[in-house]
Design a protein around this nucleic acid. Structure first.
Lengths: 207, 207, 207, 207
DNA sequence: AATGAATGAGGGTTCATTCAT
DNA sequence: CATGAATGAACCCTCATTCAT
């Protein structure tokens, strides 16, 4: 947790620091990210950095938290009244929302996705600490509901499927980022395609 | 490309070097991998390393190549006569093969998967250089055939779907690695689940 | 010398500061002691510290002074009417008193002993400044009296012997601290042993 | 333990490094000693230092070892045939030898004495590791022999007395260093005084 | 008088790469 | 072709002190 000093900072400066950190972690893994670059870009003294944070891990965790909060806020505002949706519509909203979020916040998306894909489980656990990995839980609940409502195949393995959907969502969002570019409208069909595939399968319906 | 010196090495030594490098890149990202550990584990002198390779990038690229070749060989031997399979059976073989490969070659799998998930496109491009990303091409061809044979929905976006399938395959293989453990037999049902989902969709077939 | 500000402080706060400083210098050498820890434990602001003291040296000198005063007061109260004692009884009182003081004031004793053992003469001189090294003077006077009264060997080198006795006293007190533990009664025999050795020599009296 | 690299160094350079380290640790405690100053004075690159030693602790331990060995060699050569001496003559040789060693190797003596006086028992233990604290053991054995031969008072507490003698020896050697200066001849009487005190006691023999 | 953020030199350590032998 | 010592920039982090409020 950042030190109180950090939260007492004038907003303008605090934002400068946060932005510099986001920039750094968007372009680098935790290991290769550099405190030096952060302080240079934030325009603060090296010592000041350590008045705000305990260490590199501290900023990283904080930025990750900010990332998670912003994305969660973004998505929850989007799917305000969950009840209206059936599972696939919800999925579509979430996938599309994930992409739109990545489009509007490419750096945050990069940070989040990079961390989700992190392979070292010890590092992951150390960073996450108490931060709950909420996203999958939410998805699992949605799937349970979907099954209960008869929308989803009751034979689905919920845990496994939720895991897979999360990864698919990220894959889609990165496909967009690297292959399609900035045009969001142009990309929506891809979401539809992916969902159609997930919904109806890839099997030719004629047969 | 490794220097000629490397390929002139007595086989025993060359293998020692390759193994040490594989070990290192299996446990570390390119950035955090250390030349020191490689030379120590290979039992060669630091200077020798630079007689064989131009720099760290050079070994990494080479190891990546080796990884790709071995996996490709593994898979192609497995699905010797492609013609017999319909697309979903082929998919199943490939998914299961990917997992079995990861089980039998966990280090190579770790290296490959880590690199596929690499987010920095500049780094990726720099490393790949001329190395073609063959795997997706192969999948795309399979899908084209599947469509031609009427097995697959002709509305599928081939490029996009191939990309997605690759990612899904990796995700499954990693789910196996971290959640299920060493028992391959125990894991096959997950492959079936994933494929059923892709084949028939998640939609409840009753409705 | 602490600034006037320090002495104008409400007693409760001044004591908090002094205690925190004593704590820090009891557990650390001057060099490794940290102003941060002092202000934290005292519950004052970093800036306040520099309103009270010129620098780290300043607190240290002050704490050393306090230490000396308290020990001197302790010992002088103990040996209230010096005249009654012969030199060796006095010595015994002083040695035992030194140990009891160390037992009752382990932190102060640690600070004092550490400084006495300080090897850098420039540092020692810089710190001591005008503070006279009173303790040795007192001992020297006692020895002069002892010689005059015929209790001590007139061939003793007073300055040198006083120096040695001081060091021996500290050594004993530290032997107690690390080897014997908290039981003061249990330790008194060691004082007797040391004094017997100093009084009668180590030579076998039989010969 | 220094790395092999260090011992493979050309002698001239190795000595430069050792000398620079000795200089640094003679003038500073372990904590305040600086790797920077060592490498500057040795005229080597910062990185080279870490080719020779694992860390600061490593050099320190090594220098301490060198110190101990040299002093031991010095003393054992001096008291070649122990058997001839009675305990007090031996003591005299050892005290005088300690002083002469300190005179001829003031830096090594400073390092050794500083470490013996070190108060933090955890640090002491960490540094010493397997290095046995031989000196006291040797003294204790000498005292046992002295008692057996009837030279020493059989009531002496051997462990305690050995500890005390070691400290007294150091105290004397430091008294010499700071109060008497470089003239060894001029100082020998002090050794006699101290020993006479220890041998016959401080009590006036007339009474 | 009290505060606490700002500072920057310095701390120990790592590392890919070079180069003389 | 093998070797392993040499290098120095960069790494993360600490600290006594200053200064504006």
């Amino acid at each position: 947790m950042p030190k109180p000093t950090f939260f007492n900072l004038p907003e303008e400066k605090r934002i400068r620091v946060v932005d510099a950190a986001i920039d750094e972690f968007a372009n680098n893994s935790f290991q290769t990210a550099g405190v030096n670059r952060i302080v240079d870009n934030a325009g603060i003294a090296k010592g000041s950095f350590y008045q705000y944070f305990n260490d590199k891990e501290d900023v990283f965790r904080y930025i990750l938290e900010v990332t998670g909060e912003r994305k969660l806020k973004y998505l929850t505002e989007m799917v305000a009244n969950l009840e209206k949706y059936d599972f696939f519509d919800l999925m579509k909203e979430l996938f599309a929302g994930g992409i739109r979020f990545a489009m509007e916040n490419p750096k945050l998306a990069a940070i989040g996705n990079r961390f989700i894909k992190e392979t070292d489980p010890l590092f992951k656990e150390k960073i996450l600490g108490e931060m709950a990995p909420k996203s999958n839980l939410f998805l699992e609940q949605m799937m349970e509901k979907g099954i209960a409502k008869g929308e989803l195949d009751p034979h689905l393995d919920v845990r496994f499927s939720a895991y897979l959907l999360t990864n698919i969502s990220i894959s889609i969002s990165e496909y967009y980022q690297f292959h399609v570019g900035d045009d969001y409208q142009h990309f929506l069909p891809y979401v539809d395609k992916a969902l159609a595939m997930l919904k109806h399968g890839m099997k030719n319906p004629q047969t």
